[in-house]
Design a protein around this nucleic acid. Structure first.
Length: 314
DNA sequence: CTGTAAATAT
DNA sequence: TATATTTACA
């Protein structure tokens, strides 16, 4: 009974998967540009959409990739990854000299996998921002996750809202968000489908509508512990999906460290052994569905009272 | 820019 | 199949 309150804000570093798992960054995949040009991105999808209707755009992007502009410094995003084919293993010389080696620049993000960790970060940002300012833009900025774009956040935000709404309407308020360290027990997962991902992440108790009668609603300025770690975590999480997720999830690993010019290196790779220190017990994360948020690793003992996230990091 | 809706891919 | 994510439109 020590951690009665529960700052959903716990520690993400602990939830980090095994460092060994987040290293598939060396899979030298073919140049994204080439892949696009050659049209060999995902063998699984391809032109296989059943005959229904294809009003809007779709795949088969002509040799005219619209390069918007990816000012992403640290890491780019998630280049096309062959989740099933193994040809990506070593196709290396696909365009070696060919010219332009500008791969990780304006790539078409395959699919951002919102891993629980990432989602947690998302919720976290929203919690700090408040429903008022919980706009995609702010959230994205607060998240500071490279590769994360406003679209991604906006999209997820939508889902997140729906999830919250659903919860309120069903539960009625009793700590709908079970996450927060025993804030009223677990809600028997009303919608195991739409809320699968959300259920895994701790939902701050004050996400409900602002008009609710919930008086105990306060925004404890819970400064994040080590922002660096979080960044790495987020990046890593986004980069390396969870290979051990539920039954059969797409293990599409987003390759982050993709230096367009080969200038930057992998920030998280060289810092892992230092910051990411585990307890020692080889307890992996067999079932990420449950987050053991019972420990408020806050400034207890250690004065890591960070004022706030870097508001201007973008 | 934000929110919502529809489409698509996995 | 259903779900998650992406994208387009308002």
């Amino acid at each position: 009974m020590r951690e009665e309150d529960s700052n959903w804000f716990s520690r993400w570093e602990e939830e980090l998967p095994s460092p060994e798992e987040l290293m598939p960054l060396s899979q030298t995949l073919i140049t994204p540009d080439l892949a696009l040009a050659f049209d060999i991105p995902n063998p699984t999808n391809n032109t296989h959409n059943h005959n229904n209707n294809t009003p809007t755009q779709q795949q088969a992007p002509p040799p005219t990739p619209p390069p918007p502009s990816n000012p992403l410094p640290t890491s780019a995003a998630t280049p096309p990854h062959p989740n099933s084919a193994e040809f990506g293993a070593d196709s290396a010389d696909l365009g070696s000299g060919a010219a332009g080696e500008e791969p990780a620049r304006t790539l078409k993000r395959p699919r951002l996998v919102w891993t629980p960790q990432l989602h947690k970060r998302f919720v976290d940002a929203v919690a700090h921002l408040g429903i008022k300012n919980a706009v995609p833009k702010t959230i994205m900025q607060l998240m500071s996750v490279d590769g994360l774009t406003r679209e991604n956040v906006a999209s997820h935000l939508q889902k997140y809202r729906l999830y919250l709404k659903r919860m309120q309407g069903l539960s009625g308020g009793s700590g709908g968000a079970g996450g927060g360290g025993g804030a009223g027990g677990l809600t028997a997962a009303p919608d195991p489908a739409t809320d699968h991902l959300f259920a895994s992440s701790p939902v701050p108790p004050h996400f409900l509508h602002p008009g609710r009668s919930n008086s105990e609603h306060f925004l404890p300025f819970v400064p994040v512990a080590a922002l660096q770690q979080q960044q790495q975590m987020a990046a890593v999480a986004a980069a390396a999906a969870h290979p051990q997720l539920q039954t059969q999830y797409h293990r599409q690993v987003g390759h982050f460290g993709s230096p367009p010019n080969g200038q930057f290196e992998h920030p998280f790779l060289s810092r892992q052994s230092q910051t990411v220190h585990r307890m020692g017990a080889p307890v992996h994360n067999p079932v990420p569905g449950y987050v053991e948020d019972l420990e408020s690793a806050n400034g207890r003992g250690g004065r890591k009272v960070l004022t706030l996230f870097p508001t201007g990091d973008d």
